[in-house]
């Protein structure tokens, strides 16, 4: 059974791009969801093998807070994908021990490598 990836991204075009990419790699997608609250609900309801999290989302809940929830309730790995370079935000994100931090605009090869690595798979 294909691994399921929770996709949390508030920019519809980027989410669409990620959905096509991830499906093309043979994984199933949970989402994409644009709001932190919806992400937590979706994760609690259906679970996932990996979460791809944007940091700044469409509601007041950030990707970091979503990660904190995932971390407190499961051993599911997560990867942050962000355009932010704010030191304070980066430190908060790093403190949640993500499987990887990927900077936008992302390089497709690196994204694929990090997703497979986080899932313990070989490309």
């Amino acid at each position: 059974m294909a691994a399921r990836i929770l996709l949390v991204e508030d920019e519809p075009l980027i989410a669409w791009n990620l959905r096509i990419l991830i499906s093309g790699w043979g994984f199933s997608i949970l989402g994409p969801v644009e709001r932190g609250r919806d992400a937590i609900e979706a994760f609690d309801r259906e679970g996932a093998d990996l979460a791809l999290l944007d940091i700044f989302l469409a509601d007041s809940l950030s990707g970091i807070e979503v990660a904190r929830h995932i971390r407190s309730t499961s051993a599911t790995p997560f990867i942050f994908i962000t355009a932010s370079r704010d030191m304070g935000t980066m430190e908060l994100a790093e403190a949640e021990s993500p499987a990887a931090m990927i900077s936008k605009p992302y390089e497709e090869g690196r994204l694929k490598a990090e997703v497979f690595k986080a899932l313990g798979l070989e490309i």
């Binding site: 920019e11 075009l13 980027i14 355009a83 370079r85 900077s103 605009p105 992302y106």
Partner: peptide
């Protein structure tokens, strides 16, 4: 910088 990087990502995604 955040907006520039995000905008480039959106163009690539489009």
């Amino acid at each position: 910088h955040h907006r520039v990087k995000n905008s480039l990502q959106i163009v690539e995604s489009m």
